[in-house]
Simulated assay, not measured.
Amino acid sequence: MPVVNIQMFEGRSDESKQKIAKDVTDSIAKHTGVDPQYVYVIFNDVELKNWAISGEVYSETLKKNS
């Protein structure tokens, strides 16, 4: 049972997530032979203040670059 964990910034629509889940599931099933009903996709929506890059919280990076 493959489990795919996708972490991304919050704000994506349910429709967008549905399309991503379908594409990821289809790809896993195609390349592993696993029945798609056993492929799990978990979305973790992360607030910008809870994500850091290069040692700096991303929301602060965006402020500097805007």
Rank of each mutant, 00 (worst) to 15 (best):
V46E: 10
E10A: 15
E15S: 15
T32C: 08
D14E: 15
I6K: 02
F9W: 11
V3D: 06
T61D: 00
I42V: 15
D26M: 04
Q7Y: 11
N50H: 13
K22E: 14
T61I: 03
N65Q: 14
F43C: 03
K63V: 03
M8F: 09
N44K: 13
M1L: 04
E10L: 09
Y38D: 09
S16I: 05
Q37C: 04
F43I: 01
L62V: 12
F43M: 03
Y38V: 01
E60A: 08
K22G: 05
Y58G: 00
A29I: 02
E15V: 13
S13C: 14
E15G: 15
Y40H: 14
V39N: 04
Y40I: 11
Y38E: 03
V46A: 08
K63Q: 12
M8S: 05
K17P: 02
G55T: 00
G33L: 02
I6D: 04
R12E: 05
N44W: 08
Y58W: 03
G55M: 00
L48V: 09
L62T: 05
I6C: 10
V34I: 13
R12T: 05
N5W: 06
V39S: 07
V3F: 13
N44A: 13
T32A: 08
P36E: 11
N50K: 06
K63T: 05
S13H: 13
L62W: 02
Q37D: 10
T32E: 07
M1G: 07
Q37L: 05
V41Y: 06
R12L: 03
I20E: 01
F9N: 06
W51D: 00
S54A: 11
V24S: 07
N44M: 09
K49E: 15
G55S: 01
I6L: 12
Y38S: 09
K22M: 07
I28Y: 11
N44E: 14
K22S: 12
I20V: 14
D23T: 11
I28M: 13
Q18L: 13
T25C: 09
P36H: 07
V24P: 01
E60N: 10
M8Y: 05
K64T: 00
